[in-house]
Design a protein around this nucleic acid. Structure first.
Length: 574
RNA sequence: CGGGCCGUAGCGCAGUUUGGCUAGCGCGCUUGGUUCGGGUCCAAGAAGUCGGGGGUUCAAAUCCCCCCGGCCCGACCA
């Protein structure tokens, strides 16, 4: 490709609305342009990278026995009504009507569609197992798109759905995907860590996310250096020991706490440590109002809480709802002497407490000497606390650490949720009708590319891994007004292009401009035809990722280039 | 949806507080020259509904009202 003919608008300055390295560089290097909030065009350079990543994914999925197909992204609402998700999905699912006023949906995920395809076309256990995938555009009307293609509304995702006759089959497919993912990310030059994950409202049991450790990541990961336990904080556990107190139960006592609401304020005001408090929170679910109790020094993990309650929607109750249930404003509530009967969900840290402090359900008053069991009871006890750095590993009791990560892939066992809801039946070898079991496996393609840039850049720009670089090499003729230079560049370009993807920077620009651009767009191998060529007929080869420069005679360039290419490619071959 | 910041040339910005020459600067773009190993130098030039609408005023980018859009933080998120 000739640079002079390519739509490759590089920017000298950082765009105003980009914050993280990958977003800034994708804009500056002419990889993407924004069309509207969360909607991006991949320009030619970016499209080349996109195709390479897709190709790697495709090869590895096929290798693992999955089959590619291509369903539409516009989906009739009826399928979503069948699974029961039409009403559950919320506003991130883009809903629209066609000209016949039929309700339609832009697919945010494709469980229903794939389940439907299997339902229509598979009748026998002989047809299973199946693992079907697509690499397709998805749409989620994100509440707040950000960081360029890291979190956008329209994006490309690879998603696969497996169908098996039993759990053993599912386990096999799951493991095959796990291995395929490891290979895919390695080949893309991305370091990822599989972590235990929550299954969300997808339903299902086992689940792992593939995380790229990064300070700009939106997920929090809990990690034990000692035994290797790694989990998304949404599901992470810690070893918790609560020894029952031998303290004698004292009588309840009201204490005045004017305008003192938070645990922090109470600790300061009463000079009592946070472990003595019961944090009482009121939440609303799709069915009911509940009160949630946790010890003052812990935070509630809303994902765990959802599981404990068994609900789908969960949000803090409004001020009015809180008053109605407790009789007091937020900050002065407790499970003792509630005005209305509601279900009470208690963290494991609650029952062992003695003579604890919480609200009096009366403005500007708290109660002390609250004793669980004596002064109130609860409906559910569960671990609903959010693990913090410094807590103990559930397996080896060593100290847990936390860090941020970008979720680039997710695999999980769905179970029978969709096949049952949508009535998928096949006959087993005994002629009995059975319901297949599903798994689901996704990779965010754009997010993968952005993550690669997060991990591979310097002050001058992107440093592409050879495996997904938009070009293998770039030829930079330093002086376009020197006919000998131009001729050599042209010849080299023709020759190398027979085996490699080469960008020829044939613009009549100053050398500085060309070098800056070459660094910015991150082509792995640069060939400079400059003063060493005019002086001694040698051209210079340089790797983007190192400072070393090698002078090579013109007729040896092809061979050296091939060596370098192989060396650069080696880490990404499996 | 709540809080904060911001909309002036393709991009990045100044000017708005205190209304007043013809609306500016850098980059980019066009033309000519110059230079040729890290975003040359010189000259000439094109390019603006100052986010939109309404109002105040002799006069509005600047003051007032309404609306729209963007970004950041939060709520949300297979």
């Amino acid at each position: 490709m000739r640079r002079s003919q390519m739509l490759l608008p590089t920017l000298r300055e950082d765009p105003k609305d980009a914050e993280i390295a990958s977003h800034i560089l994708m804009m500056r290097a002419g990889i993407i342009r924004k069309l509207d909030a969360g909607l991006y065009t991949f320009l030619p350079l970016g499209h080349r990278v996109l195709l390479k990543v897709i190709q790697i994914i495709r090869e590895e999925m096929n290798r693992a026995g999955a089959q590619e197909l291509l369903p539409p992204i516009l989906i009739p609402a009826s399928l979503w009504r069948e699974s029961g998700r039409y009403d559950i999905m919320g506003k991130e699912m883009m809903r629209l009507q066609d000209r016949h006023e039929n309700d339609m949906v832009l697919g945010p995920t494709h469980e229903e569609v794939f389940t439907h395809i299997v339902r229509e076309n598979v009748q026998s256990y002989r047809d299973l197992p199946l693992n079907l995938y697509q690499i397709n555009t998805k749409f989620r009307d994100e509440i707040r798109p950000r960081y360029g293609v890291m979190r956008c509304r329209e994006f490309i995702m690879k998603d696969a759905y497996s169908f098996d006759i039993d759990e053993a089959g599912l386990e096999k497919n799951y493991q095959a995907m796990r291995e395929a993912y490891r290979r895919i990310f390695t080949r893309c030059g991305l370091e990822v860590i599989p972590v235990e994950a929550d299954t969300g409202n997808m339903g299902g049991s086992n689940s792992e996310e593939f995380m790229v450790p990064s300070s700009v990541g939106e997920e929090t990961i809990i990690h034990c250096r000692s035994c290797g336990y790694v989990a998304n904080v949404e599901r992470a556990q810690a070893k918790r020991e609560f020894s029952p107190s031998s303290e004698e139960m004292l009588p309840l006592e009201e204490i005045a706490t004017p305008n003192i609401r938070t645990i922090e304020e109470l600790v300061a005001f009463l000079k009592v440590s946070a472990e003595k408090f019961i944090k009482s929170l009121v939440y609303r679910t799709e069915n009911e109002i509940v009160m949630v109790l946790i010890r003052g020094d812990f935070m509630v993990n809303e994902t765990k809480l959802k599981h404990a309650i068994g609900c789908i929607e969960l949000e803090p109750a409004t001020e009015e709802e809180v008053e109605k249930v407790t009789g007091a404003p937020i900050g002065f509530v407790s499970p003792v002497r509630l005005r209305q009967k509601v279900r009470i969900i208690a963290d494991e840290s609650i029952p062992p407490l003695r003579n604890a402090i919480s609200g009096a359900n009366k403005k500007d008053y708290h109660l002390k000497n609250i004793n669980p069991g004596r002064d109130f009871s609860w409906d559910v006890v569960a671990d609903i606390h959010e693990v913090q750095e410094g807590e103990k590993c559930p397996y080896c009791s060593q100290e847990l650490k936390s860090y941020k990560g970008i979720e680039v892939g997710h695999i999980f066992k769905l179970g029978y949720k969709y096949t049952e809801a949508m009535n998928v039946r096949v006959l087993d070898k005994n002629g009995q009708s059975i319901t297949p079991i599903m798994g689901c496996y996704g990779i965010g393609v754009g997010r993968t590319i952005a993550s690669v840039i997060e991990q591979n850049h310097d002050a001058n720009g992107i440093i592409w891994p050879m495996s997904i670089a938009p070009f293998h090499g770039i030829i930079v003729p330093v002086n376009m007004s020197d006919p000998a230079t131009v001729e050599a560049a042209e010849k080299l370009y023709q020759k190398l292009s027979t085996h490699f993807e080469i960008l020829l920077d044939d613009r009549d620009e100053r050398p500085g401009v060309k070098f800056k651009d070459a660094d910015l767009i991150g082509i792995p191998i640069r060939i400079t035809i400059g003063k060493s060529f005019t002086e001694e007929k040698k051209v210079e080869l340089k790797l983007r990722r190192s400072e070393e420069k090698h002078l090579v005679a013109l007729d040896e360039v092809e061979k050296v280039f091939e060596d370098w290419y192989e060396k650069e490619m080696a880490p990404y071959r499996l």
